[in-house]
């Protein structure tokens, strides 16, 4: 049994596939690709598949790690090729490698967010006010936790935040905590900013570019 890590790119309409559905989708894909998998040894044997960091519905992911366990002889290149041939539209295998880090090391993620406003003016006002809100050091939101809803200060959770206006669009580059200990969904941050500024965009695209560990290295 050999562990293998796969990086997936999820774009286009595939962003509307939920995490649970992704699991099912990939377990079928590995069967179609005839990859010799290691099966769990329960009453209901299932191939071992583990998405390390679930992606929220409606968000794009450019390098989403998925761990598999392989039983038998197959190289990483072969896995990549055979999987690539059977993937549905919008889900792409970009890399297959032997895992370097443990999934618990995932600490944060880089998100690129594009918000499109009705006009340039609105985008400008939003950028200005959003920047001020983050810099003020206080932006509260209701966050669901195991003990029910609680109010948190988002500014304390944000690792970095940059916002820039491009005509009627606002581009945000932000690093937010993600992983098993602390998590901040960019949707929550965006909703708080919409509320604070009283402005909401016509459309938005949240794209998770990559994951980092505690010391800021790209998760491998």
């Amino acid at each position: 049994m050999k562990p293998v890590r796969i990086l997936l790119k999820k774009t286009g309409l595939a962003i509307y596939i939920s995490h649970l559905d992704m699991n099912r989708c990939l377990s079928r894909a590995v069967i179609r690709a005839k990859i010799p998998l290691w099966y769990t040894e329960g009453f209901n044997p299932k191939p071992y598949l583990n998405f390390l960091c679930p992606l929220a519905l409606g968000q794009e992911g450019l390098a989403e790690p998925l761990d598999l366990r392989i039983e038998g002889e197959i190289s990483n290149d072969e896995i990549k090729e055979s999987l690539s041939n059977v993937m549905p539209q919008g889900i792409e295998v970009t890399e297959v490698y032997d895992p370097v880090m443990k999934s618990a090391e995932i600490a944060c993620a880089l998100y690129n967010i594009t918000l499109e406003f009705e006009n340039e003016k609105e985008a400008g006002v939003f950028c200005e006010q959003a920047k001020a809100a983050i810099e003020s050091g206080e932006l509260t939101a209701e966050k669901r936790s195991k003990k029910g809803m609680k109010t948190v200060n988002l500014c304390e959770m944000i690792n970095s935040f940059e916002i820039e206006q491009q005509s009627e669009k606002a581009g945000i580059k932000t690093v937010l905590p993600t992983g098993s200990t602390l998590n901040l969904n960019p949707d929550l941050l965006l909703d708080a900013l919409y509320e604070k500024t009283g402005l909401s965009p016509e459309s938005r695209l949240v794209s998770r570019a990559c994951l980092y560990n505690e010391s800021g290295e790209i998760f491998r």
């Binding site: 309409l13 409606g58 059977v86 539209q89």
Partner: peptide, 24 residues
């Protein structure tokens, strides 16, 4: 392709995967 006009509503409805197409 999925009607562009409807994309913003996909996050407002239950099970958007019913409406997007693009299945294997």
């Amino acid at each position: 392709m999925f009607p562009k006009k409807l994309e913003p509503v996909l996050l407002k409805v239950q099970k958007p995967g019913r409406y997007t197409g693009g299945e294997l």
